[in-house]
Structure formats: C-alpha cells, structure tokens
Design a protein around this nucleic acid. Structure first.
Lengths: 208, 208
DNA sequence: ACCTGAACACCGTTCAAGT
DNA sequence: ACCTGAACACCGTTCAAGT
C-alpha cells in the first residue's frame, strides 16, 4: 500500500468516525504516525485530499452489474448511492462542491446514460435527465445525512406558535399526515417510482 | 436596528462577498466595529449565527403572492429559490444541514403544500412530494453555486484518457449532445415542466 | 525523495476584568 | 447589560533544515 493510499485510508476513517470537520492535516498525520508536513508531497493540499477522499469512496459503487432492465439498473444505482452516503455521511456535501470526474464516477454516469437510452429517452434529453436524477438522489441523501430531514422538519409546532392564527392553512389541512413520522426508506422508493414514470413519459415508442 | 440585526447584516455581507469560509467571528466583529467576544451575548455561538443567517435570507422569498394557478405558484417559488441561491451562494449548503423551521421558511412550505393540494394531489402524498420538489430545487441550485455543474462536469475528456477504450459506450453515443454546453436556465425550466407533469399524474380527478 | 520542527497567520471559545 | 483583552487549544501552510 502506497503512502498516499495509507493517508486516504486514515482520512476516510477519521471522517467516518468523527465527521468531516475532524479531518485536519494534524489529525490525519497523527493517524498515519507522521508529521503534518509529511503529507504534502503526497496529497498536495487539504483541498486535494478531500477530492481524493471523494473519488475513493465513489469507487464503492462499482462494479455495476449490467442488467437487462433499465428500471433495475437505475434503482440499484440510486439505492447504492444512498447507501454510500449513509456509510460515509460526509460524502454528500463534497459531491455538490465539484464535478464527479474521477474515472469510477464517470463509469457510473455512463451506466445511467445507458439505462436512459435503453428506456427510450431521446439522446438529446439524456444528459439533462441524468443530472436531474442524480441531483435528486444526492440531494435526498444529503438531506438525510446533513440534517435537513431531521427532527422538527415535519412538525413545525414550535414555529407555529410564532405565527398568527391561520397563517399556515395548508399545514392545518394536512395535520393528520404531518403528525406521523415519515419512513425515509419507503419515501425514497416511492419517489424513485414516480421518477421512473417521468422517464417513461419522456421515452419514445421506438427505443432504437 | 438592533445589535443582532447589525451582526447578521455584517455576516451576510461578508458571506456574499468572500464566501462562507470568510465568515469568522473575528471578521464579523471587525465589520461591526467590536471585539469578537462582544458577539456572543447576541448570537450565542457561530452555529447559531449561521442558522440565523439562513433564516434571514430565506425571508427574501416572501411575500408570496397568492396565485390562482398552482403551476404559476410552484414555478415562481422554484425560480425565486434558485435566484436566492445565486444571490447568496453560501445558502445552499446551509439549507441541507438543518430543517427549515424559521417562521418565514414554514410559510414557504405552506404555500407549496397549498399549490399541491390545488393541483389535486392526494393529501397523503403532499408532504412527500413537497420534500421531493424542494430537494430537487435546492440540489439544482447547490450544484450550480457549489461547483457540481462546473467545467468538465459535462465533458470528461481528461478522464476518458485514463480509461480503456470503449469503457464509456454511452458517452460515445451521446458525444454530439455532450459537446455543447448546457444552458442552465433552460435546463431548470425544462426539469420543472417535467416535474409538473409528474404532479399532474399523481393528481386525482376531483381536487376536493 | 521524504520527513522534521519551528514559525506565521489564522480559528472558536472561556474566563476574569472592566464600565 | 455590554464590552474588552488575554489566554487556550486548535487550524493550513511556508520555510529552512536534516537524512
């Protein structure tokens, strides 16, 4: 194992255990058993270290088993991406801050393109639709791991007190459904099913 | 203007101009003309300062003009949210890290609920669909401002060299459409139109 | 080539002291 | 109540020096 891989391993371990903020050059160096400055020849800078960490965990999405059904293919990739973000809760925020150009990341994009082509989506719409789907999947995963879907996101009881009566008519009408907590697994699957129908609607009758 | 508002103004000004990383207690204190420790009685901690900044700029989405058409309503809110994220490029990352429970943010959610109810979406599906739509809109905005849609996100020519020939068959097939840069305004509008159709598909014939 | 150690210019926050 | 100033335990990174 090269020193660079050793450094990446240490950084990922720290991020998984203590969060991205705990990944300091000093902490990584400690874990490796070396002085902070010894990291620089191998990783360049902290920004490059973060990019390399992202590339490394994205490889966990591979290999993609070539399915015959585009629906299975997209579902598998979506669930795998969400799983990845749950195993490495820090990766979501990194995904939005740079293009995913690591070779393994581009392979994943290619698989999504292929699934959309198989579905019969016009070639001109494929790149846009890939961005839309990955934006949703990454956004959902980041909402879960980052805290947007956290407690009180559904039940704004505390907030309602600060607002005049009747300021939230739709919340009142939906009180019954806002009361019970969401099942994030179910919701993700249902969202994907809706998006699958969106894809079908865009597909042309003759897929080739 | 209270001291707290003065502090929030200073923090937002710095973040808009130099990015979120430039918002340090020391920098904000400097801008206000006071010592760093003088901020604490007013804002509690840096984490609370960030939350307050988020709440403050979200208020720019108000007031929501009650439109008769749910389509107009959703489109306006989506474009306004994207515009907000472009005026304050730091807000996207904050949105994903905590529930939007500021009173003004809940008003926005209520307007979306109302639009979905007007569209005829079953009440049981409304909260889920609101989360799906806002996840997409916020994710799209963050992709633009954060850098995910940045250069080389579409044309992975550099990466392709690192991969064996034929590793990216779908990219090859789509070369023609991947070559020309995307128009992010157009793409956002097209995505919204697709999502509108998704909403229509979920709507029941009798909206009441 | 690879690593160390001191230094620089920063952080958020605590604490005791001033008015 | 509001603010200051010194201090503590951190940052990322440069630089000169060692092997």
């Amino acid at each position: 194992m090269s020193r660079k891989e050793e450094i990446l391993d240490a950084a990922v371990t720290i991020a998984d255990r203590d969060g991205l903020d705990a990944v300091s050059m000093r902490a990584v160096a400690d874990q490796v058993g070396v002085t902070p400055m010894a990291l620089y020849p191998h990783i360049g800078s902290k920004a490059e270290l973060l990019a390399a960490m992202q590339g490394r965990v994205l490889s966990e999405l591979l290999p993609i088993q070539a399915g015959t059904d585009w629906r299975d293919q997209l579902r598998q990739l979506a669930h795998a991406s969400r799983g990845l973000a749950r195993r490495h809760p820090w990766v979501g925020s990194l995904m939005f801050s740079r293009p995913s150009v690591a070779p393994d990341a581009v392979r994943v994009t290619d698989a999504i393109y292929q699934a959309l082509l198989d579905a019969g989506v016009p070639a001109a719409d494929v790149p846009r639709l890939e961005r839309m789907l990955s934006t949703f999947v990454l956004g959902y995963a980041l909402s879960e791991t980052g805290g947007r879907f956290g407690p009180s996101s559904q039940d704004p009881r505390g907030t309602r007190g600060q607002l005049p009566d009747g300021a939230l008519p739709a919340h009142t009408r939906l009180a019954q459904w806002l009361a019970k907590p969401a099942d994030w697994d179910d919701e993700f699957a249902t969202d994907l099913a809706d998006l699958e129908r969106l894809i079908e609607a865009l597909a042309q009758p003759a897929p080739e």
